[in-house]
């Protein structure tokens, strides 16, 4: 149902590192799960729409009022790397690295 390259593609979309062993284990597990959940296709849903939310709430909004923000120190306290008041991240390196 799902093959190795499917799993690799999806892992890439999810930016999720998987070892070869992990992929080996996942392929059959996911196939079985997908087979089980795929049974829904046989259910007749022609008369109903999708439910995104079970509560009947609508128009939940707030007034446009600015409130004090977090201090910069609190915002960056858990940052892996910072440089002064900014957060540091790596860039996408050139292909062939």
């Amino acid at each position: 149902m799902i093959n190795r390259s499917d799993v690799e593609h999806v892992a890439r979309l999810a930016r999720l590192g998987l070892t070869d062993e992990e992929i080996d284990r996942l392929v059959p597990q996911l196939s079985r799960i997908l087979e089980a959940v795929g049974k829904l296709s046989a259910v007749d849903t022609s008369s109903v729409g999708p439910t995104a939310q079970v509560i009947a709430l609508e128009n939940v909004m707030r007034d446009d009022v600015a409130r004090p923000s977090m201090s910069r120190e609190a915002a960056l306290a858990e940052a892996p790397i910072r440089e002064g008041g900014l957060l540091r991240v790596p860039v996408v390196l050139e292909e062939g690295r």
Partner: peptide
């Protein structure tokens, strides 16, 4: 989408 429809049911 299918699952959300079955959810309605």
């Amino acid at each position: 989408v299918k699952a959300q429809q079955v959810r309605t049911l």
